[in-house]
């Protein structure tokens, strides 16, 4: 009886343990199915992400191509800008030269004719007498202390006008051109090799045998005199580069742009004083050039000494 009872209890325990194991196996099976579903879902997500990544990579590649194209366009634009600036500087200086040549020719003709007329008048015998008469009439007309009858004043004015017509160049100021001498004075630094300040201006060529009627020579000498006065003797002589007058000065221990500014101010002041001494109206414009533009326009060694 005891044994049967034990067998029954053992069978009951086995059955209950088996049921428990079956339940656990079922739950694990469900868990496996859940994990499989999740894995499939994750795989799908990974597939989508890979697709998105591939699209993003394509976008990146396309954007990089656009960037390279933009960079190439920027470089081309920079080259074009550089060339256009160089051309603009050259054409501006060439225009100044041409315009200055026109003013200088007009100045030379006016002054030459004027001096020739003065010489001719001074060689005539009556000139001295006419000048005496002219200045006596001038003094008489301007003398406010002596009343002059209207008829006499009118006759004196007419006589004065006649004398003025005959000896005008001897008592009149020298003529000046109608135009205005306009020039652009550019200044910059040359950074290749020894730092050097450079100033350039488009002056026309001076005549082979210059004279007081040579406006170009007068302006060139005045600008060089101003440079010597302000900077000191021993400064390098100006040179001609493609017809443009170029001043160069090694910077030494000073900042090159500071030296360039001093040199520019000296040249500009000399040009103003020279034009004023010749009685020619003058308009100067100062422009600072980027060093790479200056290096392209005024290369070293491309010089013709003055």
């Amino acid at each position: 009886m005891g044994l049967l009872k034990d067998f029954l209890r053992i069978d009951a325990d086995r059955r209950s343990a088996l049921a428990t194991v079956r339940q656990e196996a079922q739950s694990h099976r469900l868990r496996i199915e859940e994990l499989g579903a999740e894995a499939r879902r994750k795989r799908d997500e990974i597939g989508m992400l890979e697709e998105e990544l591939r699209r993003l990579a394509e976008d990146v590649a396309r954007t990089e191509e656009l960037l390279l194209d933009l960079e190439a366009r920027r470089e081309a634009h920079d080259r074009d800008t550089h060339e256009r600036k160089v051309d603009a500087v050259r054409s501006g200086l060439a225009h100044d030269r041409a315009d200055g040549f026109r003013i200088a020719e007009e100045f030379r003709q006016l002054r030459g004719t004027f001096e020739g007329e003065r010489t001719r008048l001074l060689a005539e015998a009556d000139t001295g007498r006419m000048m005496d008469n002219f200045f006596q009439i001038e003094a008489f007309l301007k003398d406010t202390g002596t009343p002059i009858p209207d008829a006499a004043r009118k006759a004196l004015m007419k006589e004065r006008q006649d004398l003025m017509a005959r000896i005008g160049p001897l008592v009149a100021p020298p003529p000046v051109p109608d135009g205005v001498f306009k020039a652009t004075v550019v200044y910059s630094t040359l950074e290749e090799g020894e730092p050097t300040a450079v100033v350039a201006v488009g002056l026309p060529d001076e005549a082979d045998v210059s004279g007081p009627h040579d406006l170009s020579a007068l302006l060139l000498y005045a600008s060089y005199a101003s440079v010597v006065e302000k900077i000191g003797p021993g400064v390098p002589r100006p040179r001609r580069s493609d017809g443009v007058v170029v001043y160069e000065q090694p910077a030494g221990s000073r900042p090159a742009d500071e030296v360039a500014l001093d040199l520019f101010l000296a040249v500009e002041d000399g040009l103003r004083k020279g034009a004023a001494a010749a009685g020619v109206p003058c308009e100067l414009t100062g422009v600072f050039l980027e060093p790479e533009i200056a290096s392209a326009v005024f290369p070293r060694g491309d010089a013709r000494g003055i």
Partner: peptide, 12 residues
């Protein structure tokens, strides 16, 4: 002349 501050700007 310019080094002696004696240069006349009209060149005469």
């Amino acid at each position: 002349l310019a080094s002696r501050q004696e240069y006349p700007m009209n060149g005469l």
